[in-house]
């Protein structure tokens, strides 16, 4: 990597090849991002997991439990952010699988000899991942909106829906970079297992379908320090129309953002110092 920096300063090379310029870097990211998106979206199973499973859960839980569960846990304004946060973990799984497979098939090794830089690779994986994750959230909310229209419980379907989607962006970013982190570090045999731990954690510790109020305060604080519950609670706060307080909503957003930033740093380090180095 240090070699790269030296050579960038070398005038002969800089003058000799236009493909090393800044605009070319953007083009490489776009090309690689297009490839990432196609690899994920052309796998029919990714639709089953990323969309099918969450939407079925959303509709089924709402239809079955909304009338009987206490505390409104399975009402749309509570359930939808939970399902959206949970479903994002499947995007993480797909990013993990793609990155680790690219390592084991030596696809990345081939591209390491191209003009691609480490940031080009990471962005090329992350941008489509984040967009796919956002689409999942949007589709979850649209489905909830339709369900709400059908059952007549549409009071929250209003301007709040956009900020509610937007406040899940940090957790989506965190997921995608966890995917790049796991994919960079672990083999395509080990990575899915580790991802399923995160998927389970997102299922059980996010409070998506468990009343967190009944849990011990200490455990609840622990969950709130993880991005899952923080994100779900943030989404619920927005939908409820409650005042967005610094100690409440913004604290939750901050927790998720902190995880996102942390994962971005870890993923870049893992890519640079593990994925790239193992090819040496």
């Amino acid at each position: 990597m240090d070699d790269q920096k030296n050579i960038e300063k070398s005038p002969t090379v800089a003058a000799g090849s236009s493909s090393n310029g800044r605009g070319a870097g953007g083009r490489r990211v776009l090309l690689f991002a297009g490839r990432t998106a196609r690899e994920i979206l052309r796998d029919p199973l990714s639709f089953v997991f990323c969309l099918g499973v969450p939407l079925v859960m959303l509709v089924a839980m709402y239809a079955l439990f909304s009338s009987m569960a206490p505390g409104g846990l399975f009402q749309l304004d509570s359930l939808t952010p939970g399902i959206a946060v949970f479903s994002g973990t499947f995007t993480m799984l797909y990013v993990t699988l793609l990155v680790s497979r690219d390592r084991t098939t030596w696809f990345l090794t081939r591209l390491y000899t191209s003009p691609m830089r480490n940031t080009d690779f990471v962005l090329g994986y992350a941008i489509p991942g984040i967009l796919i994750g956002l689409c999942q959230v949007v589709i979850c909310y649209l489905t909830a909106m339709v369900a709400g229209l059908i059952t007549g419980s549409t009071d929250w379907i209003s301007v709040r829906i956009l900020p509610a989607i937007f406040c899940l962006l940090p957790v989506i970013v965190a997921y995608v970079f966890i995917g790049i982190l796991f994919g960079s570090l672990f083999s395509d045999k080990a990575a899915p297992g580790l991802s399923s731990i995160v998927i389970s954690a997102a299922g059980f510790l996010s409070g998506a379908w468990m009343p967190m109020e009944t849990l011990a305060a200490g455990f609840r604080a622990f969950c709130a320090a993880l991005p899952f519950y923080a994100a779900v609670r943030g989404g619920r706060t927005v939908l409820s129309g409650a005042v967005l307080t610094v100690g409440g909503f913004w604290r939750d957003v901050l927790v998720c953002t902190a995880y996102a930033v942390g994962m971005i740093i870890l993923a870049c380090l893992a890519f640079r110092f593990h994925a790239r180095r193992e090819a040496e």
Partner: peptide, 15 residues
């Protein structure tokens, strides 16, 4: 980087 411009490796795996 100049070397990269003039070479290509078809790796041991299909890649």
């Amino acid at each position: 980087l100049a070397v990269r411009q003039i070479i290509h490796v078809s790796p041991q795996n299909t890649a």
